[in-house]
Amino acid sequence: MTKRILVCDDEESIRLLMSEALKDNYDVVEAADGSEALQVLDRENLDLIIIDIKMPHIHGLEVIERIRETNKIVPILICSAYRLMEDDIVVKTSDVAAFFTKPLDMRALKMKVSELIGT
């Protein structure tokens, strides 16, 4: 059965990029903000979540916290233009599988995804 990935980014072009890069091997679902992402999570079974940090309405880190309240298993990848050190981003390592900074190395991202959930 094809694994399902949720891509949550407020930038349409980034969502398109992710889904174009991953759709050959995975089923990709898109969400334009945190609340949409939480709704998808309620509705569907997800194998992986790729999420941005700076988003309108709900901050990405808060979205991760909320996801972890109900789902401790699904691996989460962060893809953000922020830098962990420079921008003082504090992430619980237990909550997040990997942190990718934009611009992205698409090959490395794909490898990480397949490492986490296989193809």
Partner: peptide
Amino acid sequence: ASWVAHEIRNPLTSIDGFAQL
């Protein structure tokens, strides 16, 4: 500087990502 860095990284991600694709 920090704003420019952040704002430019997003379109840069698209450009770079789509170029890779």
